[in-house]
Simulated assay, not measured.
Amino acid sequence: MIFFGSRGKTVSGQIVEGIDCPSCESKQFVTFGVIKYFHLYWIPTFPTSRTVGIECTHCRRTLIDKDLPAKLSGEIKATVFKKKNVLPLFSGLIIIACLVLFGIYSVQKDKLQEAAYIEQPLADDFYIVNYAKIFPDADEKYKYGLMRIKEVNSGRVEFQVSKIAYNKVSGVRTDIRNRKASSDDYYDIEPYYMAAENLPEMRESGAIYSIERE
């Protein structure tokens, strides 16, 4: 399957007169423009070249770009390459820009939301953590795990610590999504305690990777 490539689009122009056709000496031509563009999944992303020409209405002889007087070439470009003909060819670029902006917005929104979660921790909050930054004996290869808040009392947070650790964060997220992490059997019996005031610092250090609240 072809995901990207280049294609061309022909834009019809107006009829011009006053130029002698080299083949039949007719003086009437139809102007046109050809826009080549790069595409992703067949969506025009951005133009790569623009060429103009004229075609004799009598014998169909075509004159392209450099064969035309510079003044006429400029006039044709101004006529056929209007915004309404060119802007749609930036569709892919506009979509990409929107996706990037949406991604940035989502990341910033998540950061603000997680900051609010840390300021007011609640029971059953899921903390995806880097065990290697919390427990000295943690396996560096399988360092991503889950800590669920069991209770918050007088500035002290009691966590349940997962029995399972992964080499990627995606493994932890899958357990949350499949509600596997909602079972008490998923965690060790021994709790882990932490002062609530230390949570922001742990988030900054990367010990707390992210927070999810149902």
Rank of each mutant, 00 (worst) to 15 (best):
Y166E: 04
I176A: 07
Y41L: 13
Y144T: 05
V161M: 05
E212T: 06
M202D: 08
T31P: 11
Y37T: 05
I208N: 03
V100M: 15
K82L: 12
G145Y: 10
I19N: 15
M1I: 03
I211T: 02
S49T: 02
V11W: 01
D20K: 07
E190K: 13
S73V: 04
A165L: 13
K111G: 04
R179S: 12
S210I: 02
P22D: 05
F159T: 12
V52I: 07
I208A: 02
L89A: 07
D139R: 05
D125K: 03
Y144H: 04
R177Q: 14
E75Y: 11
D175F: 14
N85Q: 10
G5A: 09
Y166R: 03
S26H: 10
T45I: 05
I211H: 04
A181Y: 01
A97N: 12
E55Q: 15
Y186M: 08
G92S: 03
I208Y: 00
K82F: 01
F4E: 04
E55Y: 08
R60H: 15
K143M: 14
P121S: 08
N198L: 11
N198C: 04
A123R: 07
F46R: 01
P44R: 03
C24G: 06
Y187T: 01
E17Q: 15
I208T: 07
Y117P: 09
L63K: 11
D185G: 09
Y193C: 01
R213L: 00
D65L: 03
W42C: 11
S154R: 09
V80E: 10
P200Y: 08
E190W: 06
R213G: 03
I164F: 12
F135N: 06
Y127K: 02
D188A: 06
Y144K: 03
S154L: 10
T51G: 10
G145K: 12
F135Q: 04
G103L: 13
C59Y: 06
I189F: 08
R203A: 08
R203T: 03
K77H: 13
I164Q: 11
L87M: 15
V30I: 12
N130T: 09
M1K: 07
Q120S: 12
G33L: 13
D139S: 14
P69M: 08
E140P: 13
K111Q: 13
E204M: 02
E55C: 14
V11M: 12
S49Q: 07
N198F: 13
